[in-house]
């Protein structure tokens, strides 16, 4: 009995650091955010309980549904491009070409460069007066004058996606490359002796065998991209005219910019619900895929 109790205490002692971390960093802020979302907290010493008023307001007044839709569109394109480019990159890096290692190393900079610095670099490239992109387009006669990519809603929307893709692609590429390399070489040799060409082998062997990796990476990337803040904030701060305002930017602007903590918290809770749904889908997919592998 005593030894049982000491074993439990020992286990708790080992778990304590992680438990404290989760309680302080995750559980308390989450709980506090949920509580705040039912109040009219602002930059005042006190606040009142307002029930569902914040939720009612964000879904009836303003453009919150538009922001949600924009977030999904932004996330959809960003994740899709990352998957397609990541897959193409992995296929190329997996090909037996001379200097393969050099190319593999060259994929890493977007990931290695501190994110803020990479984003500032893109900010300059998008600049109408001094930016490389605008300059090149003018030099090649594609545009007549300077194009300030971040100054217009449409172009800013795509510019932020491109930067997000640039930063996100290396991880997807490396993950897909690892998955590709775990496919037994024998399968390709068997297909090759049967006369299957490169594309046929990719379509009938590589792609289907990578489905678990593609599903896992898409869902992980979806969760990360949905919450992508730094890129948009540094490049456009959600502008111009809210054209790049996604849910996370919108929440920050409301809670920190306008000091409406209660309403900001309600917006944050909505994000939390969406991300939780993605996480549930992710964990279910992982469980299903690992069961499939076990068969």
């Amino acid at each position: 009995m005593t030894s049982n109790r000491s074993a439990v205490l020992f286990a708790l002692a080992l778990l304590a650091p992680a438990l404290v971390y989760i309680l302080v960093i995750v559980a308390y802020p989450l709980f506090d955010t949920i509580v705040l979302s039912f109040t009219n907290a602002a930059l005042k010493p006190t606040y009142d309980w307002v029930g569902w008023a914040n939720y009612q307001r964000i879904f009836t007044a303003g453009n919150f549904t538009e922001v949600i839709l924009r977030t999904f569109v932004w996330t959809f394109f960003s994740v899709s491009f990352k998957m397609v480019i990541g897959m193409a990159g992995a296929v190329m890096l997996n090909a037996a070409i001379p200097g393969q290692t050099v190319f593999r190393i060259l994929t890493m900079p977007p990931w290695i460069v501190p994110m803020a610095i990479g984003i500032f670099m893109w900010g300059w490239m998008y600049n109408g007066q001094f930016g490389m992109i605008s300059g090149l387009l003018q030099n090649f006669g594609i545009t007549n004058g300077p194009v300030a990519w971040l100054a217009y809603g449409d172009t800013a929307f795509w510019a932020t996606i491109i930067t997000d893709v640039w930063i996100g692609v290396p991880m997807v590429t490396i993950y897909f490359l690892a998955a590709m390399q775990s496919i037994p070489k024998d399968l390709y040799e068997a297909a090759w002796t049967d006369g299957a060409g490169r594309f046929y082998r990719w379509r009938r062997i590589t792609l289907p065998m990578m489905v678990p990796a593609i599903i896992t990476m898409s869902l992980l990337s979806l969760i990360a991209t949905f919450n992508s803040f730094d890129i948009i904030w540094i490049l456009t701060q959600g502008g111009p005219s809210g054209s790049t305002t996604t849910m996370i930017i919108d929440t920050f602007k409301t809670a920190i910019g306008s000091r409406k903590y209660g309403e900001g918290a309600a917006r944050a809770v909505v994000i939390c619900i969406f991300v939780s749904i993605f996480c549930i889908v992710y964990f279910r997919a992982v469980r299903k895929l690992s069961q499939g592998e076990a068969k």
Partner: peptide, 8 residues
């Protein structure tokens, strides 16, 4: 036609 050790 080849039969592989791992069956492939």
């Amino acid at each position: 036609a080849m039969v592989f050790q791992s069956y492939a």
